[in-house]
């Protein structure tokens, strides 16, 4: 830490020959202090992140893949597990359903929670803090207990409106939107709070309506956090299992999480290779979405706005 800003005064003119070396060394030190250590941290973090995944990869490539027989490094390179995945299961459907549900759910929930976060951050009304706190607390009730109530609710819905009942992506979507406000609102509210109030105030003075302030000024400024919450909601929905398991029983209407769990949950069976292959494929849409939103996350739109 000390070396970073330090331009030591000592070096100087005592001897010239070693100074060249020292300068090179110093430059290297300097490079390390400013950039190098960052790579070191990043590389070790990547190693920590990847080694269990490498294990899954090697299981996916091993046609006899089981948990205990798999080594860290791939021993074979067979795509048998991948082809089996598509031949034996409705993986294509699962994939499609997951993309549909997670895609729509994450967009909708980002939108809903951005609306709420704007109100919580910029407006003062009675019940504001109680509302924020209840939003958090309601998420804390154990979900496995609420399943009974959800069955009750959706049995009625299925009877009346089969289009949004059990075994439909829309029904599950509605259920997920129930949780849209939760954590996302908190996260976004925190970001709205960091934006200087003068921005929207001056706009208001200029005659903008609250909706214009929200859509034209606030939303673009919080684009990074919209991207982050969108991504998090996407991942959260793709991984959601407890509700989807009771909700989707038709093989073709299942999501990845439910379908994949079925591969390993089967009584004492050994589908680990196929399961590992599926796990890897499941990660692909998430990585793609991340790629898509990455530029918003890193573009630093906000910083620019504050400058201007």
């Amino acid at each position: 830490m000390t070396s970073l800003s330090g331009t030591p005064v000592g070096g100087g003119a005592t001897s010239t020959a070693p100074a060249v070396n020292r300068n090179a060394g110093r430059r290297r030190n300097r490079w390390f202090a400013q950039v190098g250590w960052r790579h070191l941290v990043a590389v070790s973090a990547v190693a920590f992140s990847l080694f269990p995944i490498l294990f899954v990869l090697s299981a996916a490539l091993n046609p006899l893949g089981t948990l205990s027989s798999t080594e860290l490094l791939p021993t074979g390179a067979s795509l048998e597990n991948f082809t089996n995945l598509f031949d034996r299961t409705a993986f294509g459907w699962w994939f499609f359903n997951s993309l549909l549900i997670a895609g729509v759910a994450s967009f909708a929930s980002v939108f809903l929670s951005a609306l709420a976060a704007y109100a919580f951050s910029r407006m003062r009304f009675s019940g504001r803090r109680v509302g924020l706190l209840s939003l958090l607390l309601i998420q804390m009730f154990p979900q496995f207990l609420a399943i009974v109530a959800i069955f009750l609710l959706f049995t009625t819905i299925t009877d009346l409106w089969p289009a949004i009942g059990f075994n439909t992506p829309w029904g599950l979507l509605l259920l997920y939107l129930g949780g849209a406000l939760g954590v996302n609102t908190w996260l976004m509210k925190g970001f709205f709070d960091t934006l200087p109030r003068e921005l929207d105030e001056s706009a208001t003075v200029d005659g903008a309506t609250h909706a214009q302030v929200f859509f034209r000024i606030m939303l673009p400024l919080v684009a990074p956090i919209l991207a982050v919450t969108g991504l998090l909601a996407f991942i959260g929905t793709i991984n959601e299992f407890l509700m989807a398991n009771v909700f989707l029983t038709n093989s073709e209407s299942k999501t990845l999480a439910v379908g994949m769990f079925g591969l390993v949950a089967g009584e004492r069976n050994n589908n680990f290779g196929i399961f590992a292959a599926g796990t890897l494929l499941t990660a692909i849409p998430t990585v793609l979405v991340f790629q898509m939103v990455q530029r918003y996350i890193v573009s630093g739109l906000t910083a620019g706005a504050v400058k201007g």
Partner: peptide, 27 residues
């Protein structure tokens, strides 16, 4: 530039609100 982005975001949001609520395909 900024306003255009805002417009895009707004339209996107509305489109999503419409599909998200399941309204678009009810009929």
């Amino acid at each position: 530039m900024r306003i255009r982005t805002a417009g895009v975001v707004a339209v996107l949001g509305l489109a999503l609100a419409a599909t998200g609520c399941g309204g678009g395909d009810d009929d």
